[in-house]
Design a binder for these strands. Structure first.
Lengths: 167, 167
DNA sequence: TATTGTTATACTCTATAACTATA
DNA sequence: TATAGTTATAGAGTATAACAATA
């Protein structure tokens, strides 16, 4: 909307290219800020918000969860415990292996996860509202391409059914 | 390089569009992971790496630093103290206002900041190596556009001489 | 009175190492 | 022996509230 008001030089300033490094770094801080504020809006620490996010379509063991979040297993123990204390997740035993547990969303956790995801989506739509529809589509595709290329290169595809996720 | 080897179906899989929300979120985690590992490689906590990064072209007061990093001023006190303990930054008095201090890189901090930035740049180039030159350029421009649109919308332009940075 | 920065406090988050229980 | 997860510990990072010094 502001793009239609040529009143001040500031509005007329075309975006200068920050370069791929600074562009990606600053964009990532912008997105992390969105996640941060959205988590805050739901009274959640940001990592717990991320946890319920990844648990929406998974029920991983602690080890898988550590891999997924790139954390040490001891860190995921603490994370799961804090989230459990808030009633977001529960540990469920694995019959085939009595050493293992799976981490699963509670009903409350699932509702919070959906609300959080919706809020993030809304805020991000707002963040890219300065782009044309064509460019939003382009950005979405380029981001996807980078993420998926990286996942393939590192064998850490995060999609539930992917080869790397051996769940 | 791997793009030239059509040996396995996995390499042939076209990137599916994750959508703008998931695309941006996952990309931001990818970039944050790069920052994380680069900081690790230099033995730095990631926030201190970010601190020396923003101090490369600034010498802000504590309040300005808090604004820049979106932290409470008490958090920046701790951050500056930890970074000072490592010899990365120093507090310098402000003659015009004896309550205030500015945070400045030491020589060591500056060298570390440059090395860190170079490492991040290298790792990010690697991360986008799956894109064509044209698409890298597009991504860079789109990211810049989003960041700058957001900065304008929030009056938080992070460039040193910008209207919002009133340094 | 208002502002700049620090301190005290409490919590989240993180990794390393040592541990328990099971495989 | 090896693996799954937890505990103990130590440190980084964060915000809130109360505070001292200066404006």
């Amino acid at each position: 909307m502001a793009a239609a008001t040529p009143s001040r030089p500031r509005a007329a300033r075309r975006a200068s290219d920050l370069g791929i490094t600074d562009g990606l770094v600053q964009l990532s801080f912008l997105v992390q800020g969105v996640l941060d504020h959205a988590a805050d809006a739901h009274g959640l620490p940001v990592l717990q918000a991320r946890l319920v996010g990844v648990l929406r379509d998974r029920e991983p063991s602690m080890a898988q969860l550590a891999n997924l979040l790139d954390l040490d297993k001891s860190s995921t123990t603490g994370l799961a415990t804090r989230a459990e204390r808030r009633g977001l997740v529960e540990r469920v035993p694995v019959p085939e292996d009595r050493r293992a547990v799976r981490v699963r969303l509670t009903g409350h956790g699932r509702r919070l996860a959906e609300a959080f995801a919706a809020e993030v989506g809304q805020r991000l739509e707002q963040a890219v509202s300065g782009l044309t529809e064509t460019n939003r589509k382009r950005l979405s595709q380029l981001a996807s391409q980078v993420v998926q290329h990286d996942a393939a290169a590192h064998g850490t595809d995060l999609t539930p059914g992917a080869p790397g996720s051996r769940a």
